[in-house]
Each structure stands twice: as structure tokens, then as C-alpha cells.
């Protein structure tokens, strides 16, 4: 699979895990103030965290512990290994190398769907 590019990402930390969401999929970032889908669920954490930041995406809220916005014009996206194709209901779209670490790049829409399915399971 060829490498792609992404323009700007929101870097999110959830416990010891981290992920990146394309800036174009995030409408707003605000302190958590109400119900939100807890991204920690995708990493096996228990739901119930009430502090952190909320990312508004597609009219819904994603909860994370902290965020940083990186507006680098073009970031190289490393492709998803074949073994991980389809993981998290297709939310994983690649990886970016930033700040000396590898960040899973996710589609916010698919991640919301994945969290909804996990919550129902």
C-alpha cells in the first residue's frame, strides 16, 4: 500500500496510549463538559473518565485526556500493516511519526462507530 499524506493532525493522549485525528475531521476542541464517547474504550480502558478534552467530530464528542494540534502542512502517512487492516472497524488509516513516536492515525467517523459497537457489546 502506498504512503499517503495528511494535512495537520490533532494529537490525542489517552492514558499511555495515543492517536492522531486529521484536523479536517475535528470541528472543535473544548474541555469535557458532558457525555462523550471515551476513546480509552478502544484501548481496553474502562469507561467513566469525566475529565479531559472533548473533540467534536461529525456532531458527536470524543473524550481524550489531552490534545495538541499540529498544523504541519503535509505529514507522511505510513500504511497500515496487512495484519491490521480493518482493525477498530476500519478506523485505523495509517501511522504518522511525530515527536519521536509513532501515532496511529484514525478516522474519527469510524472510531465513533467502533466505540458505539464496543459499548453495545
Amino acid at each position: 500500500m502506498p504512503r499517503g499524506l495528511v494535512e495537520g493532525v490533532v494529537l490525542c493522549r489517552v492514558g499511555e496510549a495515543r492517536l492522531a485525528v486529521p484536523c479536517g475531521e475535528v470541528d472543535a476542541i473544548a474541555p469535557l463538559d458532558g457525555p462523550a464517547w471515551d476513546v480509552g474504550l478502544a484501548f481496553g480502558s474502562a469507561a467513566g473518565a469525566v475529565e479531559g478534552k472533548a473533540l467534536q467530530c461529525f456532531g458527536q464528542l470524543l473524550r481524550v485526556d489531552s490534545v495538541d494540534v499540529l498544523t504541519t502542512p503535509e505529514l507522511t502517512v505510513l500504511p497500515v500493516p496487512s495484519l491490521l487492516t480493518g482493525v477498530a472497524d476500519g478506523a485505523l488509516t495509517g501511522f504518522v511519526e511525530l515527536l519521536g513516536a509513532l501515532w496511529p492515525l484514525v478516522s474519527a467517523g469510524h472510531l465513533l462507530e467502533h466505540l458505539r459497537r464496543r459499548a453495545e457489546a
Binding site: E16, A17, R18, L19, V39, A42, F43, G44, L78, P79, V80, P81, L83, L84, V87, A88, D89, A91, L92, F95, E97, A101, L102, W103, P104, V106, L111, H114
Partner: peptide
């Protein structure tokens, strides 16, 4: 290792090696 959202427990994570991501 970098943890992967939605991954099964046996997948410990991934790392970048020689320009590719290895699970």
C-alpha cells in the same frame, strides 16, 4: 511499542522499522 486502538490482546503494539510499521 505504540498501542493500536481496537487491537486484540495478543497484539502488543507496533513499531516503525526501516520505514515500515510492524505489528
Amino acid at each position: 511499542l505504540t498501542r493500536v486502538p481496537g487491537a486484540a490482546p495478543h497484539l502488543l503494539g507496533v513499531f516503525a522499522h526501516r520505514g515500515e510499521v510492524l505489528p
